[in-house]
Design a protein around this nucleic acid. Structure first.
Lengths: 237, 237
DNA sequence: GCTGGTCTTTGCGCCGGCGCAACCGTGCCC
DNA sequence: GGGCACGGTTGCGCCGGCGCAAAGACCAGC
């Protein structure tokens, strides 16, 4: 893919949470310090324990933040979309990443070294405040999901995970809402800490009841309201 | 309790994470904007959905951050100790608190209005960066605990919760390590999303095996290494 | 078009944890 | 000192989810 025209990039990135409120000339200057990284499906921007050398802002595609269990199983903690920042620990002196960042499909991000990013946080209070706002939002989101993970039965949590995918990356189609990137039973299992067999049984049951239509790594929500009823307390959209 | 001597307070708070690196005169000035709040055991600094009017730094005692399930059960997301900040969402425009903050035993905190705090973040990049560092650390801590909650059996998680209590608020006694504030079976159940009967069975079993000694809301770890073996992958201290 | 690999489905026995009940022990207050 | 309330203990039947096995389906590459 050809390098972005810098003016295009400034326009595109002016709206990402981290750079909100930053003058265009200042943003252009910051972008000259960045490198672009592209990843093929399944590649990692970084793995857990890698040296924390860079900070990233996702420009294209999707990324899942992962951790491994001591037994080597992968768990998905969050999904990121374009405009989201990740990998910030190095700017605060952490030696290595505590999580991994794996591309779902093809993905691209801008990368700054951790030292550069530390310097930008110190120089630009707008960026530091935006980052604080962004990370606080992610903390509260994870607090809610953690409470749900600790207390809810598996069907509710799987329903919630599927609705969340549809909400963040769904597009309307004639039959309902289609999740626009490949999602396997194993992916949903990793998001919910269950096994792919449990997820498969649930999705098969929903398909029988007409709530979804699914194929290999492909899901369409044909009755999102019924799924929401299973998930129970999804806030109205 | 008599109001603090301001010089004492500056000395005490110079080391809390939020104010690290701030000149003493600037810190003194910030402290003049604060009010002190004290809470009796079981009182809330704020409850979930309360208007997000204040930002807090805990000066004495302990606080648990909680959420309610739709069924009205309480879950403990984190414990805070002296020096920890909480309640920051109002500084970013959120109308209400997404979590509750309940005093364990008697507790005291300094409180600033959300508008004052927003202003301080904008004026003092040191505070904004410190807050970013603090919140990022909490996010990573919760990511790890979330992964553990999703994938681990209940005995491991309860062992982990008890070890964590001992680590954060334990003191050496002749028999081992005593948790220095009252902790009931119900408290541990709320931290782990299980029932007090399950926690009771586990603790009774550990007591039979000589790993702990416990009474009413009181636990001494007599064999922390054995508990760590149960928890399995507690990092060495 | 065929084959191989990957993903999905389904069965079944087992076990961890829950829910509910009933009881016990301890501490505090009168 | 006694009684009551609260916290802790223990039993037992039930059920959700797992682990493993086996088979089926689908997609991509040759």
């Amino acid at each position: 893919m050809p390098p972005h025209d810098p003016t295009d990039l400034v326009r595109q990135l002016a709206h990402v949470p981290l750079f909100q409120g930053l003058p265009a000339d200042r943003l252009a200057s910051i972008l000259t310090l960045a490198h672009e990284r592209t990843m093929d499906p399944g590649d990692f921007f970084f793995r857990e324990e890698d040296p924390a050398e860079h900070f990233f802002v996702l420009t294209r595609g999707r990324v899942k933040l992962t951790q491994l269990t001591p037994e080597g199983h992968q768990v998905v903690l969050s999904l990121l979309g374009p405009g989201d920042a990740f990998g910030g620990v190095g700017a605060f002196g952490e030696a290595s990443y505590p999580i991994g960042a794996e591309a779902i499909g093809e993905a691209a991000a801008l990368a700054w070294t951790s030292a550069t990013m530390r310097h930008l946080f110190e120089q630009e209070s707008t960026i530091a405040l935006n980052a604080l706002h962004f990370v606080s939002g992610r903390l509260h989101d994870l607090q809610r999901r953690h409470r749900q993970a600790m207390t809810e039965r598996v069907e509710r949590r799987v329903a919630r995970a599927v609705l969340r995918l549809a909400h963040e990356a769904g597009r309307p189609v004639e039959a309902g809402v289609e999740i626009t990137f490949p999602v396997s039973r194993q992916d949903i299992a990793e998001m919910t800490g269950r096994t792919l067999y449990t997820v498969s049984r649930l999705l098969s049951g929903w398909e029988e009841r007409g709530l979804i239509r699914s194929g290999r790594q492909h899901i369409v929500l044909t009755d999102p309201e019924a799924l929401a009823a299973i998930a129970d307390d999804l806030p109205a959209r």
